[in-house]
Design a protein around this nucleic acid. Structure first.
Lengths: 133, 133
DNA sequence: CCAATCAGGACCCAACCGGTCCCGATTGCT
DNA sequence: AGCAATCGGGACCGGTTGGGTCCTGATTGG
């Protein structure tokens, strides 16, 4: 069913929550966000780490540290969130250079033909920002 | 990674194979398709059953029976194949009427907001036919 | 010097999916 | 009429993956 990972769903919630607090100028800690969103704290921490790795949020270590957005919600595309959590968008195994993965390689008539579909989805997801949600 | 089920991949291969044989006017049996594509026979049978249920192919029972396409490849959208195999396209659990699924329902600020994303993907997938692949 | 917080990894459990098998129903051929 | 081929539908099982938890370091403000 074209399942989107639950972590990605959480990421959106967390980002929206960060944006809300942004107005107050205060940084958010992972326990704080967990309490505000109802998402288990370790999971929030994991999501934030992934988002930080992707550059969507910046972290401040030490006491009084926390997380902060790097851009406004309107400047963050859904595709970026998905890519940050679930990795690059790829529907089938055949998309990237995974040659050995397909045993019917020589017979497969649609070899590598998922690319246009992939591109279409990526385009659609890039056109939607978090502010649209 | 927005994984598409492998069954869907197989379905595309099977449909393309059916279209090839369509020109000869002959029906294809599941063992025949399995041999031609290299996909295990029981799996081919399962895929064909799903496709038949979705109306993308018609079946003829009994001896000398088999499967046949109901339309040309150009008239089959990728979205239909995905829907036939993986069920309706829905990224998150919150999309349809699954209310109780989300424990943070009352807090969740993006409640039901995946809909536009969903719609965008569906549109993109409807715009691509199997003939494009 | 201490406390709070992020960073990164190891780990476990459950759910889901891919794949297989079996038996009943249908239909053409002999 | 009987047989063989084929679809239809369900049950079943094992492997993989993702969700979730925990622990141990590194960093920084008080």
């Amino acid at each position: 069913m074209l399942r989107l990972s639950k972590l990605t769903d959480y990421a959106v919630v967390v980002l929206v929550r960060l944006a809300r607090a942004e107005a107050a100028g205060a940084m958010q800690t992972s326990p704080g966000i967990a309490a505000a969103t109802g998402i288990p704290e370790p999971t929030v921490a994991k999501v934030l780490k992934l988002l930080a790795g992707a550059g969507l949020v910046v972290s401040q270590r030490g006491a009084r540290g926390g997380y902060r957005l790097t851009r406004s919600l309107a400047a963050i595309a859904v595709a970026e969130v998905i890519a940050a959590i679930d990795g690059p968008i790829a529907l089938a195994a055949c998309v990237d250079g995974a040659e050995g993965a397909c045993s019917t390689e020589t017979l497969c008539p649609v070899r590598g033909r998922w690319d246009p579909v992939n591109a279409a989805i990526e385009t659609a997801l890039h056109a939607i920002s978090l502010a649209d949600m």
